[in-house]
């Protein structure tokens, strides 16, 4: 029988290794798998390359992972967080590397990585500082830059409902990067507010099909980053 459920967030992230590339779903706090990230901090893996749109807020979730010194390199589009000094301070003092990627290029690189496409051409960034080092080609009179598909060892995402086969439904704009990140990793781990038996999710509404998911863990009352920050919570 196929059953991708695991008993705890600690068990779900136990095999993440030093130096791994980890994609983390979420746009700001929407869709951020905070409990999985906190489990990863406790697990201790370090020297990570992390892919996320941002760099976290306050000192919880992704910002806490960065603050703990576990992230060697961030690949993101908007590292300037309104509510965090963690990444900016570490970046300015040379403790963390940054690969800055336009948001749509980042999303498509992840999609391509998951879809078996090693590289593609995009008009985004042509004529700007972000074209530096990229191969250029003209199609039908317009210049494009070649960018590489992006893959990961692990993806951590948050869903609203998952079944034990790994099918996922999301909550509103918490979906953002998660469906493409789920495709792009060797091991995709989802925390879901509720985990149900196969057949309980209408197949017409499945957003991420279970083939892309390796592990499912139920986190019934996931924390919201803004609520934790307002309460003055820091992790660990």
């Amino acid at each position: 029988m196929i059953d991708k459920r695991v008993g705890s967030v600690a068990e779900a992230v136990a095999d993440i290794f030093d130096g791994a590339t980890v994609m983390i779903g979420g746009f700001g706090e929407a869709g951020s798998p905070i409990e999985l990230i906190h489990a990863l901090i406790e697990q201790g893996a370090t020297g990570l390359t992390v892919v996320n749109n941002n760099t976290g807020s306050g000192e919880v979730g992704l910002a806490a992972l960065i603050k703990a010194g576990r992230v060697a390199r961030m690949i993101c589009s908007y590292p300037r967080s309104t509510n965090s000094t963690v990444f900016p301070d570490m970046y300015r003092s040379g403790q963390i590397e940054l690969e800055l990627v336009p948001q749509g290029t980042l999303a498509e690189r992840i999609r391509a990585g998951g879809a078996g496409i090693p590289a593609f051409y995009t008009p985004t960034g042509v004529g700007t500082p972000l074209e530096e080092g990229l191969e250029k080609r003209n199609f039908d009179g317009r210049d494009y830059v070649m960018v590489r598909g992006l893959k990961a060892d692990f993806t951590l995402i948050k869903g609203q409902v998952a079944d034990s086969h790994g099918n996922i439904v999301y909550n509103k704009t918490a979906r953002n990067y998660s469906p493409v990140m789920a495709m792009a990793a060797t091991t995709t781990i989802v925390q879901a507010t509720s985990v149900v038996e196969p057949g309980k999710i209408d197949p017409e509404t499945v957003v991420t099909p279970g083939v892309f998911v390796r592990r499912v863990v139920e986190v019934p009352n996931p924390a919201q980053e803004s609520v934790l920050i307002a309460a003055g919570v820091t992790f660990p």
Binding site: F27, G28, E29, A30, G31, N53, T82, Q103, G104, A107, E108, I110, R111, Y170, N171, K172, T173, A174, R175, N176, Y177, S178, P179, V180, V207, Q224, E225, S226, V227
Partner: peptide, 25 residues
């Protein structure tokens, strides 16, 4: 509002009739 229903500026928003969600790509 819902902290998981936000705009690109990360502010809470609402839905108009006929709204649709989709992933980043």
């Amino acid at each position: 509002g819902d902290p998981e229903l936000i705009n690109a500026g990360k502010k809470k928003v609402t839905l108009n009739p006929g709204a649709a969600f989709f992933h980043h790509a």
